[in-house]
Design a protein around this nucleic acid. Structure first.
Length: 347
DNA sequence: GACCCGTGGTA
DNA sequence: TTACCAAGGGT
């Protein structure tokens, strides 16, 4: 049997039942693919259900505000996915008469959709023979064929795409694509792959040469930066606070947070309240206390945030316009959400 | 082409 | 604890 036949035979017997698996509705497939970018099924599942319930069609999504969409996305990370999703929903709704494009070429032109996602949607929804190459595909092919080209190199990206395309079952591209990803997620896992009983065990190069643990190869990644965050949690006598939206480039774009004073090292109370940012924001008399003496280290993919939350009590402040009890309506990073949960407990 | 973008699970 | 990395894409 050829590669695709073995693979699809395995898939038909072992595939996972997922909410987006029994539909060709491009909106649902699109939504699931965006959510699952760099995200495990278990993590994205509840978000998918929540989105499809609240936004059953592209039009519903298009008519929501960006802040509402971000709030629903809160906790899933990589928030540009949500912003681009919303942007493209509006584009399809307003410029394309609500009709999702039906070819790879048109689909990949949409914001937030790259080669992988366009291939997935085109193959699953429209039976266009375009092979997906995601982390699973890199791993399965690198091991089975014993390929040592780094998967994050230009040469590797090209080589694996062409190989996947050559293996694709053109008569059922959507099934093939989902099969190879499911196989990678269930059998040919990153760690402790289930080589015993694997349908490819007789011809897998990595297994025969004991290279399973070494493949796929990846060029080394970049280092993590340290940053020092001081959040000013202002509380006025009439229970108001200050929230600001992150609109600059960088992390958490579009999300809300407390006023932030970033320093190049950990600072104490004296240093904090004598800083220009603090005085500009809170010129009046305040009572300040440190909420977490032990700094919280919030780890992102490319930076570690050493964070202190400072509780700043004041009778009133001209910037404090957010009623404390309405904070829950704002999309916030997990770092802030975790603080709020802790803070409510201690209040 | 290098770098950036979140969060959570696993060993 | 650290390191890896998961249905990638944008700039």
């Amino acid at each position: 049997m050829i590669f695709s036949e073995i693979l699809i035979f395995w898939y038909n017997k072992n595939k996972r039942e997922l909410p987006w698996r029994n539909t060709k509705n491009p909106y649902f497939i699109w939504l699931s693919e965006i959510m699952l970018q760099q995200t495990r099924v278990a993590q994205g599942m509840s978000y998918y259900l929540k989105f499809t319930e609240n936004y059953p069609t592209i039009s519903h999504l298009a008519n929501a505000s960006e802040t509402e969409v971000l709030k629903m996305w809160q906790g899933l990370g990589y928030y540009s996915r949500a912003r681009n999703l919303h942007h493209t929903a509006k584009y399809i709704s307003h410029e394309l008469n609500g009709k999702f494009p039906s070819t790879f070429k048109e689909i990949i032109a949409l914001k937030g959709i790259g080669d992988y996602t366009a291939s997935a949607i085109a193959s699953i929804c429209f039976d266009e023979p375009t092979a997906v190459v995601d982390g699973n595909v890199y791993r399965v092919l690198a091991r089975y064929f014993g390929i040592e080209t780094p998967i994050n190199s230009t040469a590797g990206i090209k080589e694996f795409k062409e190989l996947a395309q050559s293996l694709l079952d053109k008569t059922q591209p959507g099934t093939f694509n989902q099969a190879i990803m499911d196989f990678g997620a269930i059998v040919c896992k990153p760690q402790n792959p289930l080589c015993d009983g694997c349908p490819f065990s007789e011809s897998c190069v990595a297994l025969q040469r004991n290279l399973t643990k070494d493949l796929p190869l990846k060029e080394q990644k970049i280092k993590v930066k340290k940053r020092y965050f001081n959040y000013l949690v202002v509380i006025t006598d009439d229970d108001k606070t200050i929230l600001t939206q992150r609109n600059d480039k960088g992390i958490w774009q579009g999300l809300y947070q407390f006023p932030l004073i970033e320093t190049n090292k950990s600072v104490n109370e004296k240093e904090l309240i004598s800083s220009k940012e603090f005085i500009d924001l809170l010129p009046e008399e305040t009572t300040i206390s440190l909420f977490n003496p032990k700094e919280i280290i919030h780890k992102l993919s490319h930076q570690h945030l050493y964070t202190h939350f400072w509780i700043v009590e004041t009778s009133s402040n001209q910037h404090a316009k957010i009623l404390w009890k309405t904070i829950q309506n704002f999309p916030v990073p997990v770092l802030i959400a975790n603080f709020l949960a802790q803070f409510e407990l201690k209040k």
